[in-house]
Design a protein around this nucleic acid. Structure first.
Lengths: 123, 123
DNA sequence: AAAACAGTTGACGATTTCATCAACTATCGT
DNA sequence: ACGATAGTTGATGAAATCGTCAACTGTTTT
């Protein structure tokens, strides 16, 4: 912390971008990979619509199919992917399989995302 | 359209399925589209790593290039996509273009995601 | 004005992702 | 046991995505 002249905005001054203050830390590649996988899973309109329903309450596959006006195998494929990312959990009851969001954290992520998406005017 | 028959085509548990209380509301397709686009943009390891750096502070393209040990056009392409989704904003200063997260909401979304990604053991 | 530096862009090929369909498993009703 | 209902799965083809590279713009320096 010398008594150097401080640039107004941090600078890629003179030669290198010299860490004026705290060093930035590179994100852990494994954490990034895992997180990106989750975001990727949420980043599809049909899957996100499905999750927006599950954010309201637990539902079985056929109800999801009905509400989303889609065919059952399509919904099941999406659920399979979401399950593989531990975004949803399933529970069988008789002939039906009920799905719900895996945890509260995911629920928050989804509702925060939707909130943002509804605020932004889309470009 | 003969006799009015609004029964769902399947009964599930005879009552479970039949809106026990509040009806679920279908998500707005436009909101879903916009939100999914954002999640999709976050759902890539190289972009997310980049954003994890920008979450710490504003940086110019060449600094990002340096920190991420990548080539400049690659970084610039990613930033272009992130800009088109209004996830980052840019500001030119001399020869350099500085990037930062577009708003606080995005910053929270990213840090929440990373937090989740670091908690989960990946299966 | 020219060279050098910082960054952007469009295009192309390689990979990934997505929807669809047929065939499969699982549970219930009779 | 048989058929009907509920859901899963693997394969296939079509579409979107990502990295790379050459060529471009914009800014500073000499």
């Amino acid at each position: 912390m010398g008594t150097m002249d401080n640039e107004p905005t941090h600078a890629c001054l003179g030669e290198q971008h010299a860490e004026n203050g705290v060093a930035v830390q590179l994100p852990d590649p494994l954490v990034c990979a895992r997180t990106a996988a989750i975001f990727r899973a949420l980043g599809d309109v049909s899957r996100l619509s499905l999750l927006a329903l599950l954010a309201q309450r637990e539902m079985c596959v056929s109800e999801l199919t009905e509400k989303l006006s889609d065919n059952l195998p399509a919904i099941s494929q999406r659920l399979k992917l979401l399950r593989s990312e531990r975004i949803v959990r399933s529970r069988r009851q008789g002939k039906h399989v009920y799905y719900s969001l895996a945890d509260n954290h995911i629920a928050l992520l989804i509702s925060n995302g939707l909130e943002h998406g509804s605020e932004e005017p889309h470009g």
